[in-house]
Structures are given as C-alpha cells and as structure tokens.
Nucleic acid binder design. Structure first.
Lengths: 133, 133
DNA sequence: TATTGTTATACTCTATAACTATA
DNA sequence: TATAGTTATAGAGTATAACAATA
C-alpha cells in the first residue's frame, strides 16, 4: 500500500491529527479548534463567513465550531454595528492566552512530527505547491 | 493558514480524493474501492481481516466496502474450507479487468497531481518516512 | 433581490460493543 | 476461551437546502 499516494496522505494526516489532539488536550481544544482561533487571531476582526473562508470550510460548519469555543469562553461574537447581518468574531482575553500557549505546543508537535525528514521546510513547501498557495 | 501542517495535509488530501473520484467515475468506483481491490489483488487470497490489516482500516469498515464491491461483481467472498470462520476474498474476472484499467488511471492522476513538484519521488518518500514504512 | 447566519437533514468515514458461528 | 465476521449504534466532519434577519 505504501506506494499509493492516497493511502500515504490519509494515514500521515490521521497520525498528525492524533498527535495534535493528544498534545492539545490540556487546553481542552483540538487542532481544528486551534486553527479557528488562529484565523480569528490574525489581524482585524472577521465575520463568521470570513473565518470560514480563511479555513476553507463551509459556512454551515463554522457555526458549531464557534459555538463550542464561545461556550468555553475563548471567543466572542458581536453584531457588527455597520452591517447587522454580520457576526464579528474576536478572541477573549482567555482566548488570547490559550491561543498563544497552544500555538507553541502545535509548533513543537509539528517539529517532532517532521523530525524523520531530511528537510522539513522542503516538505511543507511541497504541500504548499500542491495546493497552489 | 498555509504554514499550518494540519491545514496543508487536510486540503492536499481532500483535493487528491476529489480528483481520483472524478477520474475513476467511469469505472463506478472511488479511490477507496480501488485500494481494496489492490489489497485483494496482491498475491495469495486473503481473509477480510487480512485485507483490513493491509489497508489499516477497522475490520468493521471492510464489510460494507466488500458488500458494495461484491454487488457490483468485482470481488467474491468464499468460506475457507480449512477454517470456516474465514471469508477468503478474491477478485472476479471483471474485478481483475477493472482493477488493471483503474490502476492505470490512478497512476496518471497521481502523476498529474504531483506535477507541480520539483521531485515527485522525493515527496512520496517523505510521506513514507513520516509513516515509518 | 442578495447576503449573513442558523437550522434541519443526510451522507461518509470511523470506532465501539454486542452478537453468531466457528475453532 | 478465542477468533472471524456481522450488526447496531454513535460520533466526527462535510454538504445541501430552506429559513429569518438584514441590506
């Protein structure tokens, strides 16, 4: 099986997801939650739709993700005064702290995960090339 | 997002899955079905449990996959005479033909998919290293 | 009319547990 | 007792469609 690209990608991804989940457990979040926090944290306040766009997920998926982050006090949704259809999403102070600490853990997990490779940056760059980003 | 390993792996995998599904549509199978056929085709007859082991999927997942392949006449299950608990899985003649043709399509899809990379074999080897295979 | 967000629904993939038939 | 396979169930993750509020 290990010459099949689909098999390799599927299981590499599964293993990373697993190791990230384990490492992030102390923060009560998983890798997916952390990516949402990262999208919310990046610069100016974003609407839900913009958060979904950055993560490249469907807008119907982002609602539940934000619900659970909001329940845990990590993000807040506020109606935009300029356009009352829009929910602007921001990190709470707690959210900022958790994000900063969890990002360090993520970087460490990725470092260990890629350790078997002769050139870690090159692998990441290959993935970017495949996505055209 | 494109410096996050989880994001990159997830979307690279999603794109490959999509392109494989499109290319394999004429055969009425997807990349997952094809991997099952490949496991069944590789050498001596295997039990369901052994097929699941090669694919690294749960034994409860393989049943449905084989059901749908059997309905389409691509594989057959036979009780092993030596151990009547075991279902030995083999390709039908149709299954052999579909497998051979679909594998060519898979190879072509992978070639095109990896075309943006300076060294396609190196990328595949990186994935193998990450799985320890 | 179009857009943002929500809700309901469904489909795929995966995992666990309980069951059967065989050993 | 243990193993191979099946079935039922549940949990993620994703996608589509219909809806309410707002523009």
């Amino acid at each position: 099986m290990s010459d099949r690209l689909g098999y390799l990608l599927k299981h590499v991804q599964a293993r990373l997801t697993e190791e990230q989940a384990k490492a992030l457990q102390p923060f009560g979040i998983n890798g997916r939650d952390l990516a949402v926090l990262a999208a919310v944290a990046s610069g100016e306040p974003l609407s839900q739709l913009e958060v979904a766009g950055r993560l490249r997920v469907d807008r119907t998926s982002i609602g539940d993700l934000l619900d659970s982050l909001e329940e845990r006090g990590l993000v807040e949704r506020r109606r935009s005064p300029e356009d009352r259809r829009r929910n602007v999403v921001v990190l709470t102070n707690t959210g900022e702290d958790v994000f900063a600490d969890a990002e360090q853990v993520r970087l460490e997990v990725e470092r260990e995960f890629l350790a078997p490779l002769p050139d870690r940056d090159r692998f990441r760059e290959d993935l970017r090339l495949l996505l055209g980003e």
